[in-house]
Design a protein around this nucleic acid. Structure first.
Length: 301
DNA sequence: CGTGGACCTGCATT
DNA sequence: CAATGCAGGTCCA
């Protein structure tokens, strides 16, 4: 915090009011791909049209944006008006294992990301590793994103608009960022977003989960997993459960001992989702994120 | 409805 | 050093 103050301009803070926020967990748990942590412990990343710097000290989150004036953006993105304590209590009462993870990963939150960025980002995530997804997205932003700011000689770019990606020649995205076969998927999904009416994707925040999910999987190149990522990380659908290889395996271990399948068919996907929904109801997505991250750490060990 | 393969690429393991 | 496996999937036969 003192470092922040010395750096000078436009320091501000937001009172967390007793609600937990751990940036290492929230920004590093695999739900967003554009955040990095500086040597001095400050997290920075581009959200929409701003570069944001964040640091938590005690019950305050210190922040700065370039250009400035991004307070509302931060409150919205970090979901700072949510009652996370209540959610964690509710989950903990239902499952002692989750209660343990709530302690261990205290302050891990779900974000409210931009739906277009979330959709296009997770298209890049198919059978890919998290470091490579992040690297690819930075390449895309620097090539096709609008300049957000320049700070200490470094340029920061917004996530590319779908119009820009859709207009590219087929094939160029396969090479750029080493996207491989995901490149063509990305271009096609971008085109389909453009083809929809303005505000279509954002409007899915105002419809029920099942409806939003159905509209997303109707997009070519978007399956149930990516659709659920978009629902959970950007559309306020806290009951959404993205089922990937990690989640399938941990569901098998914890809930569904007779789940023999080694691949995720539609039926398997539904069974895993139902198991989560049955146990964690409207907050199944939060439970998923705790369990997913535990499994991620385990697999990296 | 379930299964197997194709799709790109780079890093890790054998 | 070559071969194989694998990574927050989706589509198709």
């Amino acid at each position: 915090m003192f470092y922040f103050v010395r750096r000078g301009r436009c320091l501000d803070s937001i009172d967390l009011k007793g609600q937990p926020l751990d940036l290492d967990l929230t920004l590093g748990c695999g739900q967003a791909f554009r955040w990095r942590k500086r040597e001095d412990g400050v997290w920075y990343g581009v959200v929409r049209d701003r570069l944001i710097e964040l640091q938590v000290e005690g019950n305050l989150v210190y922040w700065r944006t370039y250009p400035d004036g991004g307070r509302e953006l931060i409150v919205d993105y970090l979901r700072l008006t949510d009652d996370v304590n209540a959610a964690n209590r509710w989950l903990s009462e239902r499952d002692p294992h989750i209660a343990q993870l709530v302690e261990r990963f205290h302050g891990m939150r779900l974000l409210r990301q931009d739906p277009t960025e979330a959709l296009l980002s997770f298209v890049c995530s198919a059978a890919n590793s998290i470091p490579r997804i992040s690297a690819a997205i930075e390449v895309l932003a620097s090539l096709y994103g609008e300049l957000v700011c320049e700070k200490r000689g470094v340029c920061y770019y917004a996530f590319p608009k779908p119009e820009r990606l859709a207009a590219l020649e087929p094939g160029v995205l396969n090479v750029q960022g080493s996207l491989g076969f995901r490149g063509e998927n990305l271009r096609m999904v971008a085109q389909q977003i453009v083809d929809q009416s303005e505000g279509w994707l954002l409007g899915l925040r105002n419809v029920p989960y099942a409806c939003a999910h159905a509209e997303l999987v109707a997009v070519r190149g978007v399956g149930p997993k990516i659709a659920d990522c978009v629902c959970l990380f950007s559309l306020d659908k806290d009951e959404a459960v993205p089922v990937d290889t990690h989640v399938r395996q941990l569901a098998h271990r914890l809930f569904l001992p007779d789940l023999k399948a080694k691949s995720i068919t539609n039926a398997v996907y539904r069974r895993v989702v139902d198991a989560f929904r049955e146990r964690y109801g409207e907050l199944a997505g939060w439970a998923q994120q705790y369990l997913f991250y535990e499994d991620l750490l385990r697999s990296r060990a």
